[in-house]
Design a protein around this nucleic acid. Structure first.
Lengths: 340, 340
DNA sequence: AAAACTTACGTTAGCGCTAACGTTGATGCC
DNA sequence: GGCATCAACGTTAGCGCTAACGTAAGTTTT
């Protein structure tokens, strides 16, 4: 069934070129110490034999690899798809390949992934957030592998941290809403403990409204549904069943779009009868009518800068430490000044 | 900077346990031939030493790995994110890890990725579509690595193929539109040659309308914009500038949602003044108002079944060959019967 | 009670590649 | 002409792990 023809190795290339393995190795890796003529000949021979180097052997010999392991919660979200995409560009140019796993917001899954990753002796590891299991941190700390923590930063990064302050982000958006005169806020999110970043933003929202609305007065709807658009619809319906908010903050823009669509179906005028706000300025946010009030997270910058710092570290520059980037408020048509 | 403490290897575990490396290896891999007491002791010692096996060495010794390389055009599209997600479940359970690369619809990038992949001696390779460079096919064919081609199938798969017939899919949606009485169709897509699957669907649409609308009469708008929602808006505006279609087919649902939002902004009544239709039944399709007329592609099934066939093949079952799955029409509120 | 297994290990020989040293012949220099 | 220098190679010794084959006890069979 599967052919047994053993693929040509360095030995075959060397023999067919009439040189030693070492010379062939040098020629193929572009190292010096090989005459131009021989190098050319060796490359030709290798090509003819369909030679494909064996990186397992290489990695074993040099005790490191050019793999970078990445752990993200999900890819069904522009945030992480964008972060991944921007990192990939940088890593690719630097000669690294990425191995990604999605954990669905589960630290156990993250732990298992890290353990597996380390068995490949990766060049580096990228994790989402700063909240990991103890064993995860221990393993990483004494593996001596550079670690990049993205999206959310904590006080004590394993190595390199870059992201935003989600509490501050929530506060910023909340302050904007409170400033417009909204007084009866609601929040539509996922199950508590599911997404720590969303929870942090929620805390920020509550803080911002504290002067005018005590935390206990918030209307809160938590939804289990996986399709975020549908979750937004359900969540808004639930929230409206619990009270009469004048503004609804959603876990992210996908949720908010779901909420907006619910309003359209129920003929609730936005922003006249109800204000809506999302998070993260996802692609859809600026397309819907009215366009969403949201908060733009510098996610491509997080990925790009983070990746560059990691690459620099791999090249020996000490780029350890935490970096906090700023979110940017995006006022949209789903909110408007309240009152007189 | 980076600590130099050499991580514990099998040798260290064996010595600390007072057994040979082979016994330690057996114990850690759960093979038989080790007494329960010794196994337990070895596991404890390994844990205490923070032992992490070196898969490069393992792969080298057994000349294969548990990596499956995947090439997808993009992850900013539920189709591929879903396919990846459903494959990942199957592969994970079977003990394989996935390495993904996105090619942005570029065969050169795919070629480079395959070459890199093969250097890891992967257990298998997954590619999107059936249209690859000659060298890509050659390399794969004589590497003896099982290959799974997904999403779009061709007459001569490298190994295993599973997907749908995009021309037939286009025909199905087109027939529905023509059947409703639409006579002046338009198409909004990407640059020609960019996405071969989209082109195939477009051909199917044209075929279906052939009896009532000659191919030359189609209004066609091709957009370069990367944000698919925005592309849909721009494309629809362009199309409307070129003529007066009664129905507009979009490259996919994201484009269509963009078009729908354009209609809302321009106060074009959908479906009364204009019909809209997307492709792929993406998550957002059923959430917007009115809900999109679209075609549901069995993408989770493609990923799941494809992955299972690949795993079976890796276990020695010959599952080669092509499998074509059916798309399902999703009539929505963006179209309605025309005429009297 | 001797032959025939069986269990629980240990030994040997690589997997394909590369770092770190050789070795060789040619060139330059005083 | 003798000696250092250097480019262009070759040799040796692993990297950490595992398949395949020992081996030395205990256990069963007849």
């Amino acid at each position: 069934m599967v052919d047994k023809i053993k693929p040509a190795g360095l030995r075959e290339v060397a023999e067919a070129s009439g040189v030693s393995m070492m010379t062939a190795s040098r020629a193929l890796r572009g190292l010096e110490g090989v005459s131009a003529a021989k190098r050319q000949q060796i490359l030709t021979v290798a090509d003819g034999l369909n030679y494909v180097p064996n990186r397992n052997a290489r990695s074993l010999a040099v005790t490191n690899s050019d793999l970078i392991g990445v752990s993200l919660p999900t890819l069904f979200n522009d945030v992480f798809a964008d972060i991944l995409d921007s990192m990939r560009d940088v890593f690719r140019k630097a000669g690294y390949a990425i191995v990604v796993e999605t954990t669905e917001y589960d630290s156990q899954a993250e732990q298992a992934w890290v353990e597996r990753l380390l068995s490949w002796r990766p060049a580096a590891v990228v994790l989402t957030g700063h909240d990991h299991l103890g064993r995860t941190k221990t393993l990483l700390r004494n593996s001596a592998v550079p670690v990049l923590e993205i999206w959310d930063v904590g006080p004590d990064p394993i190595d390199i941290g870059i992201g935003l302050d989600h509490v501050a982000a929530g506060r910023m958006l909340g302050a904007y809403g409170a400033g417009l005169g909204y007084r009866r806020p609601a929040y539509v999110g996922a199950a508590e403990g599911f997404d720590p970043r969303a929870e942090a933003r929620f805390r920020g929202l509550v803080e911002a409204f504290a002067p005018t609305c005590p935390a206990a007065s918030w209307i809160v709807a938590r939804v289990e549904e996986r399709n975020p658009f549908v979750a937004g619809e359900i969540g808004l319906a639930t929230a409206l069943g619990q009270g009469a908010p004048d503004i609804v903050f959603f876990l992210n823009d996908h949720f908010a779009v779901g909420g907006l669509m619910h309003c359209q179906k129920q003929r609730i005028a936005v922003p006249d009868d109800l204000g809506l706000a999302g998070f993260n300025a996802l692609r859809i946010a600026s397309v819907v009518t009215p366009d969403l009030t949201t908060l733009a997270s510098p996610r491509r910058e997080i990925g790009g800068r983070g990746a560059r710092r990691l690459v620099a570290r791999l090249r020996g520059v000490d780029t350890r430490g935490t970096e906090v980037l700023d979110a940017r408020l995006v006022p949209g048509g789903t909110t408007r000044p309240q009152g007189a």
